[in-house]
């Protein structure tokens, strides 16, 4: 069936800039809602950017609007990941890369601290054991 058969005509506004799909601005509302939820209940959330129909220009636009914040965390785990706080505290731009430096996934995480930055209690326990070993060797 061709689209002409549907008696409704969609008027598409020309995007203001080339490459912009218009899909990015609604995300800001969602982020705002998620921030309110974080404040009310302490519940963190994430938006999977690779799952949304966003063009590279959309992502640039979103990144520019959200701005750069005070903290940027670099994680070296099978390739580099960056977890950067945006100018809006509590909103983190998380980019995972593989060993070749290619982006494997991208998220906006709404949290006081991103999940990955926290140390796991079991890892802390292992670390302390190793520290005790070092101390006993002194």
């Amino acid at each position: 069936m061709s689209l002409e058969a549907i008696p409704i005509h969609v008027i598409t506004h020309a995007p203001s800039e080339p490459g912009l799909s218009g899909n990015a601005p609604p995300l800001l509302r969602e982020i705002s809602e998620l921030l309110q939820r974080l404040l009310d209940s302490g519940e963190s959330a994430a938006i999977d950017l690779s799952a949304l129909p966003l063009t590279p220009a959309d992502l640039d636009w979103l990144q520019a609007i959200l701005g750069a914040g005070e903290i940027a965390i670099t994680l070296q785990a099978s390739g580099e990941s960056t977890l950067s706080e945006t100018a809006c505290p509590g909103v983190w731009w998380v980019t995972h890369r593989n060993e070749n430096g290619a982006v494997t996934s991208q998220f906006i995480e709404v949290a006081f601290i991103p999940e990955l930055a926290k140390a796991h209690p079991l890892d802390v326990a292992i670390g302390r054991e190793q520290l005790e070993l070092l101390i006993s060797d002194l």
Binding site: A45, A46, I47, D48, S50, A51, L75, A77, S78, S81, H96, T104, S105, F107, E115, L116, H120, L122, D123
Partner: peptide, 21 residues
Amino acid sequence: SRRTFLKYCATLASMMALPPT
């Protein structure tokens, strides 16, 4: 590391179109 495993699972979930959580 646990972080490597978490990162792997986050990417895998994204590729499988599962919600971020």
